[in-house]
Each structure stands twice: as C-alpha cells, then as structure tokens.
Design a protein around this nucleic acid. Structure first.
Lengths: 64, 64
DNA sequence: TCATAATGCAATATATATTGTACATATTGC
DNA sequence: GCAATATGTACAATATATATTGCATTATGA
C-alpha cells in the first residue's frame, strides 16, 4: 500500500524525493519506493525520515 | 541502545522472547537482538511486534 | 510547444537483517 | 544445589533492503 502520509508530509515541506533523500542520506529511489509502498524500510531509516519531516513514527508509518 | 520499552511490553504480556517470536513469526534471536539494540529491524517487523503486544510504533520504537 | 525537473521503473551490485544451529550463561522453581 | 527454562552470543548461510545507473514518463512553467 502506498504511503500517502509520507508523500504529504514531504510535499508540505516543499521537498522533492531527491531533496528529502539527500537530507536523510539515502538514494532517491529508496524514498520513491517507500512512498509507492514497494518496500519495507528499516526502523532507523523511518526514524531519520520522521526527524527530517518533523513527524513521529505513528504520524507517517502507523496504520490503524 | 537497548530497547527497554519492548522488553517491558513483552514481560507485561508474560511472554518469553521465544513465545513472542513465534507469535510474530520470526526467530528468537531476532527478538533478542532487537531488545539488545543490536540491530535495526524492518518496519513491517516493528509493526507486527506492536500488534502482538497491543502497542503502537511510538510506544515501542520512538525515542524523543 | 519546448525545456526542465520530478517521478516511475528495471537490472545489477552490495550491505545488512534474519535464520539456523549450537553453546554458554543467567534465572527461576523445587 | 539441581533441573529446567530463558536469555545472550557466535558463526555461516540466505533473504532482502538499499545503492547505482540509466532510461521512460509525467508534470510544470516559460
């Protein structure tokens, strides 16, 4: 399932996938694939993304 | 850093590492190593653990 | 319309999570 | 103290996240 919440949080900060990737320190594809729900990031990567986007794990990665 | 919160949540449910591992569908070592903070689980594994323990990602894996 | 940036997508390469097995050390109940 | 169970640890093997590159497609703005 796509991660819409991540995409929204990124766009809210006016960041491209590439810009976010650089801030987080991963490749652009990694961000793209996570948004597309095509894989399963590590916890530390999720945490890094959250911090860059000023969100928490529950905000971006928890589905009720 | 050790994941004390995970260990507490597990013990609260009166589960051994092995019992939790079986409920989650991973090996005992994986649970043990996560509690010891020796690695970096995948998001889907974190979510599975949370669900078994009736917690959320922020409860178990978010450090302020 | 054209140029450019942003994004999706695929193949291959590498790093690392996770497993299985096995053994050592703690811990707990008797 | 002893037996049984729970936990830490090590190593090799495997699965999978992530990187790299390159190209196709879709926006977006002049």
């Amino acid at each position: 399932m796509k991660n819409i919440k991540l995409k929204l949080a990124r766009v809210e900060k006016d960041l491209s996938q590439e810009a976010l990737a650089q801030l987080v320190g991963v490749s652009r594809q990694t961000i793209g694939l996570i948004e597309l729900g095509k894989y399963n990031p590590s916890l530390s990567l999720c945490v890094s993304i959250c911090k860059v986007l000023s969100k928490t794990l529950n905000d971006l990665f928890w589905e009720e």
